[in-house]
Computed example of a mutant assay.
Amino acid sequence: MKKKLISMLMIAAMAVSVAACGKSTPSETPSETPSETPSETPAEAKDPSEMTIYFLTKILGNQYWAVVEQGAKDAAKELGIKNLVVTGLASEAEVEKQVQQLQDAVAAQADAIVLGPVDSTAMANPVNDAHASGIPIVIVDTMINTENYDAALMTNNVQAGKDAAKEMIRLLEEKGVKKEEVAEVAIQIGSSGSQTIIDRLKGFYEYWDANAPQTWTVLRDDVKVNDGDISKAVGFTQDFLTAYPNLKGVFGPNNGSTVGFVTGLKEANRTDLVMVGFDFSTEIETMIREGKFNVSTVVQKQYLMGYEGVKQAVELAQGKKPATKLIDTGVLIVDLKNIDNDDVQSIIKPGK
């Protein structure tokens, strides 16, 4: 009888335990219901048509940045974004103006900001402040000296600089410059504070030092800064041509510097020099197609930066994180031999 009573009490205890388990609520087990997490619920994600995305370009009207801007606008149109706010600068020296534009975007409570930093160091703290406000930040083209951003789309600029140096050596050899001959290469840049340019020069110098003949030198102590001003860049070209009788090549690691070199060399008719530039403009295309100059340009995929930059901004505003924070968009070396190839045309004339 005693054994029977114990058995009955054990059965009753088990029944109470099962009943208690059956009363647990979803709020007690959030880890088992990931679909209820706000950032993963499609119904709670803001529609792109209701978003305000700010795109802070560098130079308004600049041929390179116009392509980046077009990529951003095409992405906005495709996604149904009605309010893409585009701001920019007249020159790369207007750091304070870009700081103000960034602060304006934060004050306007933008859903996300796409930024082409005009100065990698000077823009770091303003970007820190903007990011601290909770607004997603996407960096394009130029790296910023902070980790407080959500995604970045740009060229691997150190490698691109190495590619440019390799091409410079190839062009000098093709031109017939002898390895024991004294040869100098001049450089001018758009901004001394741009991490993009700093990295390109780093890569260029590293490859050059390891591979160029000892008698070939880069004029590192006379790198000129044109602030993105084409007239300055043309003037600097003329200065180089006058000051260095052993000048054999010129290197422009950004679009404005490239256009300045192209214009200056053509005005002086210095077909004896070789040139390596960056990006693709009407000026560099004309120079390449004329066939009189030994010239190549390192072409970035800047349309992709603008296009994917806006798409990343929208996804971040919806709570989605990118698989990779830093995305290398890649480059191509373009010269007379390949300028009309399909893969080149699809980059230099996107959407056509």
Rank of each mutant, 00 (worst) to 15 (best):
Q103K: 13
A122W: 05
L219A: 05
M1W: 08
K3N: 11
D163C: 02
L84P: 11
W216E: 04
Q101N: 05
V185W: 01
N156D: 15
D335N: 15
T329V: 15
S194P: 00
D328M: 02
T271K: 14
L102H: 02
K97I: 13
S192K: 12
K321V: 15
I144C: 09
R200D: 06
V225W: 00
K73V: 09
A164F: 01
E50F: 11
V67P: 04
L102F: 10
I81N: 01
E50H: 08
I81L: 12
P136K: 03
F261T: 07
A108R: 04
V95S: 06
M154N: 10
Q100D: 13
A317Y: 02
I187W: 02
L60R: 13
P34A: 07
Y303V: 07
V99F: 03
A76C: 11
A20H: 09
F261Q: 07
Y64A: 10
G309D: 02
T121H: 08
T87L: 12
E147P: 04
D335T: 11
P245G: 12
L326N: 13
D111E: 03
Q195M: 11
D328E: 07
D229Y: 05
Q318T: 04
L247Y: 01
E206D: 15
G309H: 02
K73M: 13
G309R: 05
V140H: 07
G161D: 08
Q70L: 10
A212Q: 01
Q109F: 08
E173C: 01
V331F: 08
L316W: 06
A122F: 02
T41P: 05
A130V: 11
E69A: 09
M51D: 03
A132L: 11
K97E: 14
G190F: 01
N211A: 00
E147H: 06
K266V: 13
I113A: 00
A13V: 15
D229C: 06
L79D: 04
Q103A: 14
T52V: 12
A43C: 00
G88H: 03
D209F: 07
T29F: 09
K301L: 12
P38T: 01
I139T: 00
V182D: 14
R289A: 11
E28H: 04
K166C: 04
V250S: 10
I59S: 04
